[in-house]
Design a binder for these strands. Structure first.
Lengths: 149, 149
DNA sequence: CAATAATCATTCGTATACAAATGAAAAGGG
DNA sequence: CCCTTTTCATTTGTATACGAATGATTATTG
């Protein structure tokens, strides 16, 4: 055991336990959340794909890079997600008439329907993720977590 | 906007905003944490690789699957991480004399040195990740987060 | 002890995730 | 208005992350 400190009375104790580190806990919390997501959404949509659909529903058509920033994905990631959603007919892309660099991403009719029909499940996922907590703890947790983004 | 509810007086309000969902916040918190990790560790070690080294240091040599469970990685993921660490000389694998199915993973001398020299940085990463919070908030956050793993 | 179940490691396929490099187009400054 | 900077989208390469399938080995149980 290499990670130790000496306390005042000379005792040597471990002071770095992986299981107590915030990053390790966050990773496991995400893993549990994703498992809950998949239990409600099946293999139809990944959490990332859902984020894109929900955000497009929320803000409407937008450029691919803007969409990536709004969903916390870098340019390479958002491109892959949009491509896969486009392959399945949920979104479409078109050139921006006012800016030749941009491609505007928007929901298709099918994508809008799919999104509308999934909000209930999405709400359930959030609720189930927080289920181990009391109502007060949920509020506290979300408040603190939002300071860490 | 498809995600709306009608309140008692007939007003329609949005009730699903991506930015408020626990999964989306968790993903962003991890992104920030990983960025902090990379600022302290450079390109030498990923958070996942560090988790394996720290856990091996903590519990000693163990089978690959056990190591995966101890670090919250499935069998395919832990194999890739162990392979890359082995390529770089930080860990080694050997057959288990008592169980022909198992391969025992252990730190090499170089791996143990590397691990020892990184605990300070790892502690700093955890501290920096929680830096936006007060001391009381950090304690509260870790306590609640540990209920969600 | 023989049949079944469980565990272990590997492999394949798909999907994030991001750094870095590239080329095209727009914005801004002198 | 040219030059520099910025923005945008794409591509490449590496590293998680996990479901599912496979084959080998061990454990269990009737």
């Amino acid at each position: 055991m290499n990670s130790t400190v000496e306390t005042g009375d000379g005792t040597i104790v471990a002071d770095y336990l992986l299981d107590e580190q915030v990053g390790f806990l966050l990773r496991q919390a995400i893993q549990r959340h994703v498992a809950i997501f998949e239990s409600k959404f099946g293999a139809d949509l990944t959490p990332t794909q859902w984020a894109v659909l929900a955000k497009l529903d929320e803000i409407g058509a937008t450029s691919q890079n803007r969409l990536g920033r709004a969903t916390a994905m870098d340019v390479a990631t958002i491109k892959g997600v949009v491509d896969r959603l486009a392959d399945r007919g949920f979104v479409m892309t078109a050139p921006d008439p006012g800016d030749a660099r941009r491609r505007v991403v928007s929901l298709t009719g099918q994508g809008a329907e799919e999104t509308s029909s999934r909000f209930e499940a999405a709400r359930a996922v959030s609720e189930m993720t927080l289920a181990p907590l009391s109502v007060a703890e949920r509020r506290t947790f979300l408040k603190i977590l939002s300071k860490l983004v």
